[in-house]
Design a protein around this nucleic acid. Structure first.
Lengths: 345, 345
DNA sequence: ACGAATCGTTTAAACGTTTAAATAAAGATG
DNA sequence: CATCTTTATTTAAACGTTTAAACGATTCGT
């Protein structure tokens, strides 16, 4: 890489000190600097195509105008959409973003966070893994500004922006009931993640309030790393038990993808054989023959709010902001028991 | 943010110079340094939880172990998947990645590239926009290592990793013909992007070689910013002309998404009324009632190769590497004229 | 006309590293 | 024992900025 032009280059060319060049280029002390010299400096800067070395500036000012974003997996559409929104919001404020995927792995999350901090990010937006508290304590201790995204720990006080997951579970289940569901099963991850447990609690609570029998008997938990096989197994078990379930509440888009594949393979009819509701969204849902009813997360608001809170935190305001966003129920066809699908066989 | 511990802190604590601490922590001059002092320094470093300030190190060494990645839109699954692969490959080599979305906008691309360079990235992986050549010339001139991703300019010599798009177009078309297609239309972007034009050229070439009539008459071009309406219009025009097309070759996943929506809306039967083949891939395709036949890009290889070439370029090898990857045809149902879809109406 | 205020600019230190060169102390050589 | 090596460590400059403080030269007020 070629040497870039520095303040010094400009200074020697114009015949002034680097300090003066710095002042001019940062529009500081404008009233104190002679118009002619300022103009000359700016001209030479443009001529030599000067661009600030943010590394040097960052070293001096301990500000890099870079934020770190750690998601579970950038290749997942949920993360990718958020990343895009955060990128735009950061950009509006002159920030650039470093990203990383934790793969729901505590060690990796920690490593990524450290790498980013070592690179001088001004703050972090992160979707914490299950056992991230230790890391979060460290961040708090070292006063690194951060905002949790999508998840948080109720017992740990920090800024976060997340969905109201209880409401999401509740809403989905209530809709299932109103659409004629009598036995509503749920498939969720085997996880201690609060946001996932909340979805289950919402489901359970709606069942109870509407006096729907079954309860936890109709809950199935699957492991992230055996998703395909466990989703198949659990769908199967919910459908083939003594009193089969007529509605399936799926706790995430990844679970839904696998369930859908299995349903297609087994030629089950949605919603006649089984109604489906998903918490989460992905492009694929609308192309299924019985377009899926799902709970939409307000991604735009989630990403923007998280970014704003972080930037706010970075620049002054040390307040803790906790934001729970409302889910939106998007009713399509997969949940309507009375809907007869175009699939005939 | 709290002050982090520096070499100086360790040095004063141990009672040695910062130079020595630096040597020890970087495992340099190991044979020249007394075991005891080295051990002491390492102990204190751990105790004070020392972590290198990469900003300072970067300033001194002009190496940040950060690369910049500029895609068209990180929220698009194609970009997101590549980003993930690149992230992993970079991470394996101790690099972190800054990302940005160009939105196919030359100005934005330029701005992003500059921001990244100002932040001292060691190199750039970028999907260039249509008129990126000026920027690329600048990168070449200033000797910033870079690799083009997904696209390149045949008249501009630089490293790149891309699909063999001609072959993709050719392959898709040949398959259409072999599956009984008689009149094969294509919808592509209105763009001067070489990689898109190549897809058209491949299609055209296959038509000619198989003596299929129609040729450019059956080509429709749509604008990115009016995708929905123009895709509808063009699908319609290809199907309602004097001699309607029986197969549609769609040049990208975004075009396909819109076409599919329209097809569903209009209740067209795939593949009976119209067969579909897409160049590009997205999760949604498999859930359409007639799962889509498509051309798969070897994303893994694409991302990994690009990253490796870049890192190679950064560390020594100034050679230009140009890699054209082979597309893979994935045959499902949408292209098979003899296949009778489960959709009955 | 003299000290004070103002003006335009420079000096110099600092941010946290790296690294070539210098140095002091100890050991080997003849 | 004088000299040369080796060993272990330090010195000091540098990377490219920022910024408080200092500076000399004008201009001002009385």
């Amino acid at each position: 890489m070629k040497k870039r032009t520095s303040l010094k280059d400009i200074a020697t060319r114009v015949g002034v000190s680097t300090a003066l060049v710095s002042y001019v280029l940062n529009n500081q002390k404008e009233d104190r600097i002679s118009k002619e010299v300022a103009a000359r400096i700016k001209a030479v800067a443009k001529e030599l195509n000067y661009r600030t070395n943010q590394i040097a500036k960052g070293l001096k000012t301990s500000k890099t105008f870079t934020i770190g974003l750690i998601v579970a997996d950038i290749s997942n559409s949920f993360s990718a959409s958020l990343a895009r929104i955060i990128e735009d919001e950061a950009d509006k404020n002159g920030y650039t973003v470093l990203f990383g995927s934790s793969d729901e792995n505590d060690i990796k999350l920690r490593k990524l966070a450290h790498e980013m901090i070592n690179r001088g990010v001004d703050g972090l937006i992160l979707a914490p893994t299950e056992n991230a508290i230790e890391l979060l304590l460290e961040l708090k201790e070292t006063e690194v500004p951060f905002v949790l995204l999508d998840r948080y720990f109720p017992q740990f006080r920090s800024s976060y922006v997340a969905l109201d997951n209880f409401q999401a579970g509740y809403m989905a289940t209530e809709h299932a009931i109103e659409s004629g569901g009598k036995r509503i099963g749920m498939i969720n991850f085997r996880s201690t993640h609060f946001h996932l447990e909340e979805r289950t609690r919402g489901w359970l609570s709606a069942l109870r309030e509407h006096k729907i029998p079954g309860g936890k008997k109709q809950l199935r938990l699957v492991r992230e790393h055996h998703l395909e096989s466990e989703v198949q197994k659990t769908v199967n078990s919910l459908l083939s038990q003594q009193e089969p379930v007529d509605t399936l509440l799926l706790a995430s888009n990844m679970i839904a993808i696998h369930a859908l594949r299995y349903i297609i393979e087994k030629r089950l009819k949605v919603p006649k054989d089984i109604a489906i509701i998903v918490i989460d969204e992905t492009e694929a849902f609308e192309f299924f023959y019985a377009p899926l009813t799902f709970i939409r997360q307000p991604l735009q608001e989630m990403g923007q709010t998280a970014t704003r809170i972080l930037l706010d935190n970075i620049s002054h305001n040390k307040a803790v902001s906790q934001v729970n966003l409302s889910p939106e129920l998007v009713v399509k066809k997969s949940s309507l028991h009375h809907y007869s699908s175009p699939l005939k066989r």
